[in-house]
């Protein structure tokens, strides 16, 4: 079943058209890796899916509901679509546990006992149960990003968007985050991730999307795309990153 359907999506910032007719769809449980040069519109695409950016022409369907751009529809949309950012964006005044508990508590009005249990469960899932009471500035970048993942998961989204979530990390901290994502994928979580980790995209992704100048330039099985790129643009991109 299609969880996300994007059809001829256009998005401009003023005169600058950033997305020029993007179309693709994502099945439940599918792991989609998006690659492409800086400025090709990858972040903008994810932000549209989460309602952080409005869009112009085109249709975006998520879980059977058309994304309208109306303010009132934003909250229901974001309840289904979680997001993890490059810069972690943990709430600095709250502990890891409180970061995870906050949204379930204030948005879903779940009870204190329940959210505490939930936070513990989510932190366990990312291997940080012992950091429940640690503040973000007491955690490494990799640990902060794992807390951010736990925080997004605690809202039980149907799909998790990850925008270059390892790009701000020291190289030795990348793997611990990727491992967590890999486990999520294995557990059947639907994932759309923009990444520069080509090996990861190849091994974990079910589908690879190559974005180029605001369009889906090539799309298909990662192995296929990496070994037999159909366009010179992807060929040269693959060459430049490998």
């Amino acid at each position: 079943m299609q969880l996300i359907c994007v059809d001829e999506l256009h998005k401009s910032f003023g005169d600058l058209e950033v997305l020029k007719g993007v179309s693709f769809s994502v099945k439940e449980g599918e792991v989609v890796a998006i690659i492409g040069r800086s400025g090709s519109g990858k972040s903008t695409l994810l932000r549209v899916l989460n309602g952080l950016e409005s869009f112009g022409d085109g249709i975006v369907n998520i879980d059977g509901k058309r994304v309208s751009g109306l303010k009132a529809d934003l909250i229901p949309l974001r309840l289904k679509v979680g997001m993890v950012f490059q810069q972690f964006n943990l709430f600095p005044h709250l502990t890891a546990g409180e970061n995870v508990m906050l949204a379930p508590k204030v948005v879903k009005k779940e009870s204190r006992e329940h959210v505490t249990e939930l936070a513990m469960e989510m932190l366990e899932r990312v291997g940080l149960a012992d950091k429940f009471n640690a503040y973000p500035d007491q955690l490494s970048g990799g640990q902060q990003q794992r807390v951010a993942i736990a925080r997004a998961l605690a809202m039980r989204p149907k799909v998790l968007l990850c925008d270059e979530i390892t790009s701000a990390l020291d190289p030795e901290l990348v793997d611990e985050v990727l491992e967590v994502v890999q486990r999520l994928a294995a557990d059947g979580m639907t994932l759309i991730m923009v990444t520069h980790e080509m090996r990861f995209a190849r091994e974990v992704g079910d589908t690879l999307i190559f974005m180029h100048q605001g369009k889906v330039h090539e799309m298909g099985a990662p192995e296929e795309l990496f070994t037999r790129p159909q366009t010179p643009e992807l060929a040269s991109f693959v060459k430049s990153v490998l």
């Binding site: 909250i75 974001r78 679509v81 979680g82 709430f91 949204a103 997004a152």
Partner: peptide, 15 residues
């Protein structure tokens, strides 16, 4: 306050 914090809160469905 960095814009990212507000966006993180919004992405968690907070108004």
């Amino acid at each position: 306050i960095p814009k990212g914090l507000l966006e993180a809160a919004e992405s968690l469905a907070m108004n």
